[in-house]
Design a protein around this nucleic acid. Sequence first.
RNA 1: CGGGACGUAGCGCAGCCUGGUUUAGCGCGUUUGACUGGGGGUCAAAAGGUCGAGAGUUCGAAUCUCUCCGUCCCGACCA
Length: 584
Amino acid sequence: MRMSRFVGQRLREAPRDAQTASHIFLLRGGYCRAVSAGIYTLLPLGRRITRKIEAILREEMDRIDGQEILMPMVLPGELWQESGRYDQVGQELLRFKDRNGKDMLLGMTHEEAVVQIARTELPSHKQLPVMLYQIQLKYRDEARPRAGLIRVREFTMKDGYSFHTSQECLEKYYQRAYQAYARIFKRIGLKHCLAILSDSGMMGGAVSHEFMAIADCGEDTIFASPDGQYCANREVACSKLAYVREQPLPLEKVHTPNCTSIEEVAAFLGKQTSQTGKAVFYKDSEGKLVFALIRGDLEVNEAKLRKVLQSPELNFADDDLIRAAGAVPGYASLLDLDLDRLRVVVDHSAAQSSNLVVGANQSDWHCLNFNFERDLPDKSKVQVADIATVRPGDPCPVSGQPLQMLKGIEVGNIFQLGTKYSAAMNCTYLDQDGKAKPMIMGCYGIGVGRAMAAVIEQSHDEYGPIWPLTIAPFQVHLIGLNHSRDDVREACEQLYQEMQDRGLEVLYDDRGEKAGFAFADADLLGIPLRVIVSPKTLASQEVEFKWRHWGKRSEMHSLNGLVESLQKQIQAALAEFSDAQDSP
RNA sequence: CGGGACGUAGCGCAGCCUGGUUUAGCGCGUUUGACUGGGGGUCAAAAGGUCGAGAGUUCGAAUCUCUCCGUCCCGACCA
């Protein structure tokens, strides 16, 4: 491709809206343009990259026996009513009516659509297992798109769905998918990518992993053990905290005027916050009050609590609701409370610690020496669970080592769905025994544009992206300096022709711009190999070449045999990514 | 949905507070020409604007008031 014809202007300055490296460089380099909040057009540069990522995705999905299909982005509401999600999912699902007034929606994920296919196309156990995948647009009406292509409303996703006759078969396939994902991210060039335990959220299902590209701008918080034995999303991460166990002392009421916060109470009584119990109130999906009790120095993890309560929604309760249940805000306590009027969840930290300071359920009074086992004889109305937010440095649940906190971009995820959708939507097969059974499903997603952005976050310098050869928009950037001179132009044209003949992907800067201008553009394009032709190099029948990741350093190479040499270097470099080709 | 900021040419900004010599400027980019030629060069000329939209105040509004829309940031939410 000749740069004089190539669409996508480089910008000297980034739009003010762009904050993260990937957002800035994607816009400055002319990879994409915003159309609306979280909605982008990919320009040729960006599209060339996503096509390469998509090609890798197809290869790896095919290698684990995936079959590509293409489902529509526009779906009838009734299909989602079958699974129950039409009403469950919130405003991220964009609903609208067609001209006949029929409920329609834009697909944000395709379980329903693929189940519709599976239940008609796969009637027999003999056909299973099967994995169907697609690379298709999704739409999620995000409340807050951000960071360029990292969090968008419309995006391309590779989503795959597997169908099995047994949990065992699903687990086996899940392992293959896991391996395929590891290969994919390696081939795409994501260097720091962790597979972590995650919350399956609205997807349902028991086991799931998220693949996180570690990057400071990532939205997800990860807790990782330094020895690599444990790695989990903050939403599910747990730790092995030690709890203070002592001989229980008698309950004692103490006057604590104007001490409505844990810090105030602890300071007033001369205690550590970890010697107190904190009451946190929420309102669940049905509007019922939730009383969460946790050790004073810890925070409630709402994602965990939501799961314990099986409540998709959870909001802080207002004081009126708390009072209505008979509790006193600021001094609330499980003691002297009618537990039928609310839901109670007690964190292990509060259930297992001895002699905590808790509220007395009376304004300006607390109780010393609360012991859960002793002081709440009727445990039937109380759930004890892990609802604590892990803190950096807390001990790893596996190794006991202090957990590190990392930020990550979720570039992919895999779920063992089980029969959630097949059961709800009557997706059954006839088994050997002649009985209809629901298929056991898994699902596997990767965001294409987000993966591209994540690569920039991990691989750039102050001048622009540094693309891995496997997904680079071009392999070679050929630049002619003093391009108006016949000898330079002719040498460039000849090289350009030869590179194309040999199948190299080459972008040829034939614009005749000044060196500084051309180099600055080249840095923003981030093409791995750069070849520079100028009167200076031609004087010795040479050209200059360098790898983008070298920075400004370069080497000379004789014109003779140049293209062959580049081809070899490219093959060698690609081979470094392709030990991923080994069978799992 | 809560908090904050912003909206003037493709991009970055000034002007607004204190309304009127503003025919709305500047830098980058774009077009034309010349000189240049190794890290966004110099000179000359040019094109490009419903000042986010609407209403109001005023003799007069980019500037003051109100409403709406849009965008970004923090939080909430997020298969």
